[in-house]
């Protein structure tokens, strides 16, 4: 890639002005505030008054804080619920809607189904939390009522209140919220694909599964990478879902770092400690981003 020589590199620099607005705005809105946040993390501060410098004190406390490290463990499962499962379901759905429904029953049918599945993304998280706590309620919740109706009443219980099922229930709600996101992105990516490619493959007798692996997946690989990284970051930062459904409970069973940092910032007014958590969380996510983008560059670079 670097063998293009001198004229190539000058050619590339010609694109630098297009980055200027983005970099300037980024510096003002994210760069400077993040540096200020790192500064705050070395202090003890309640949000008002003068911060007191304590050096690495917050970080030392963080290293010993078992609750914090346990909260990172829950993130692993949340990545499954917010990133892995929705991406896989989204891929299959996007392919079925485009390749099967779209071509056999018309684009309009496919659009309507896509809209229905996307809709949970539109619902404010606060409201989603309220509605799902109704549905999952132990006494008169719809989920338990449904289990009763089909004769599985023995399975009914307090989904969000029992530490054994709380995290899984949260993950199920997250899957419900998330599916629409990969679906819409994958379907927009599939629109770049020439429909005659699918038709030719079908005429040649390729089954849906074969078309899925040999046309759909290769054509939207950039989107697959983007969705996976993005939803993984979202999972690591997951906060609102936890906040509205369980508030980290019962007994810390659904605590995650972002929620933990929020509590320090706004409930305990321990802004220095919250800043330290946010800094560590950011560094973890940035490291992950670097590894992932390297992988993406290698994978997608080979094609050209």
């Amino acid at each position: 890639m670097t063998s293009r020589g001198r004229s190539g590199s000058r050619e590339r620099w010609a694109y630098a002005p297009y980055l200027l607005p983005g970099l300037l705005l980024f510096t003002a809105v994210i760069g400077v505030p993040f540096l200020m946040n790192i500064g705050t993390s070395f202090t003890e501060w309640t949000g008002v008054g003068t911060p007191r410098w304590i050096g690495l004190g917050n970080y030392r406390e963080l290293a010993r804080d078992e609750q914090f490290w346990a909260s990172f463990g829950h993130n692993a499962l949340i990545i499954v619920g917010m990133a892995v499962v929705p991406t896989m379901i989204g891929l299959v759905l996007a392919s079925v809607l485009t390749d099967l429904i779209g071509r056999h029953f018309g684009a309009r049918t496919a659009s309507v189904l896509r809209a229905c599945i996307y809709l949970p993304q539109v619902l404010p998280i606060v409201i989603a939390g309220v509605v799902w706590s109704w549905l999952l309620a132990p006494e008169d919740g719809a989920v338990n009522a449904l289990l009763d109706a089909v004769g599985l009443g023995s399975l009914a219980h307090d989904w969000l209140g029992d530490p054994a099922t709380a995290l899984w229930s949260v993950i199920a709600v997250m899957v419900w919220i998330q599916i629409g996101f990969p679906l819409v992105i994958f379907m927009s990516g599939l629109q770049r694909v020439d429909p005659s490619l699918y038709e030719a493959a079908e005429i040649d007798g390729a089954s849906w599964t074969r078309r899925f692996w040999h046309i759909t997946i290769p054509q939207i690989r950039p989107e697959i990478f983007v969705v996976l990284l993005w939803t993984t970051i979202a999972a690591l930062k997951a906060f609102a879902h936890i906040f509205v459904l369980t508030k980290g409970g019962p007994g810390g069973a659904t605590n995650v770092p972002a929620y933990y940092s929020w509590v320090s910032f706004f409930e305990k007014s321990d802004v220095g400690y919250g800043s330290a958590i946010a800094t560590v969380l950011t560094l973890v996510v940035v490291a992950l981003t670097v590894v992932f983008l390297r992988m993406q560059g290698r994978e997608l670079g080979e094609e050209r």
Binding site: L19, G22, L23, F26, V29, I30, V32, P33, F34, M36, N37, T40, G47, W230, I233, K237, F239, A258, S261, W262, F265, F266, V271, G274, S275, A278, T279, L281, T282, V285, V286, T289, V290, L293
Partner: peptide, 20 residues
């Protein structure tokens, strides 16, 4: 550059509130 620009999303919003 991309890693940098992506930080707009990776930095938790609660960390941006006081500085902003």
């Amino acid at each position: 550059v991309l890693v940098l620009l992506l930080m707009a999303n990776t930095v938790p919003q609660e960390a941006l509130v006081y500085p902003l």
